[in-house]
Amino acid sequence: MFQQLSAVWKFRYFWLSLVRMDLYTRYRRSFLGIGWSLLTPLAMTGIFCVVFSTLNGSNWKDYAQQTLAALAAWEFLRNTLVSGCKSFIQNEAYIRLSPLPFGIYPLRTVMGNSIHFFITLGVLVALVAFLGSVYIQPTIWLVAPAVLMMMLFGWGIATIAAFATTYFHDVSHLIEVSAQAFFFLTPIIYPPSLLINQSLGWLVEVNPVYVFIELIREPLVAGKIPRLDRYAYAAGLTAASLGLAMGTIAWLQKRVVFQL
C-alpha cells in the first residue's frame, strides 16, 4: 500500500499538471470561464428554494444552506464515481506508454472534482456568513477532516469502479442509473426526518453519502459538533474504500492493460 502511495507521490507533478490542464480546457471557450462552476450550484439552490418554499412555505434561508451543503457533497461523490469509472479507458494512451501507478488516473478525476467542490463550499460559507441563523462558528474547522475523508473515500471507490468498468463496460451505465436512484434515497432535497418518520431511519444512517453530508453540514451550517459515531463510520468507510482499492490494484495491475 505504501509502495503504491509513494509511487503516486513520485509522479505528483504529472497528475497535478493534468488536473490543472483539465480545469483550464474545460472552460477555455466559455465566456464565464470558471464562473460556471460557481453558477451551477447557485442556480440549483435557487431553483430548489423557489420550489420548496412555495410547496411547504418553510424558511427558505435555512433551506438554501442545507440543500447547497448536501448538493456539494453529493455532486462531488457522484461525479467522482461517474467520471472516475472511465479513467483507465480515457487514459489508455498513458497506460500503454509507461508503467505508472494506476492510482493516479482516478486521482486526476478526484482532484478535478475537488476543485469544483471547493468552489461550491466557498459559496456555501458566504451564504452561511450572510444568511445563516448561527453565522460562522468555530466548528467550521471540523469540516476539514470530513472533506479529507470524503476525498479519500471518493478516490477509493473511483479506483475500484475504474477497474470494474475496464473489464465490463456495462458498469459505467449501471453506475449512472444507480446514482439516479441513490439521489432520491439520500436526504438531499428533503429533510432526513421524512425517511425517519417512515421508520426508515436505518436507511439514512448507513447511507455513506449522508454521513459525509452531515459531517460537513452540521459544523458549518448548524454550528454543532457532529456525533462521534458518524466520524467513526466515515473513517471506517474511508479505510475500507482505500483498502479495497489498494487490494484491487495489487490484484489486477499486471493484467488490466490486456483488457484495454
Binding site: Y13, S17, R96, L97
Partner: peptide, 23 residues
C-alpha cells in the same frame, strides 16, 4: 500517442516531461 489534444505544445512538453520522471 498520449498527447493532450486540447493543450498547447508547451504544456505537452511539461506533461510528457513529468511523465518521464522530470521535476
Amino acid at each position: 500517442v498520449g498527447f493532450e489534444g486540447e493543450a498547447n505544445g508547451w504544456d505537452n512538453i511539461t506533461f510528457r516531461g513529468y511523465l518521464q520522471g522530470e521535476t
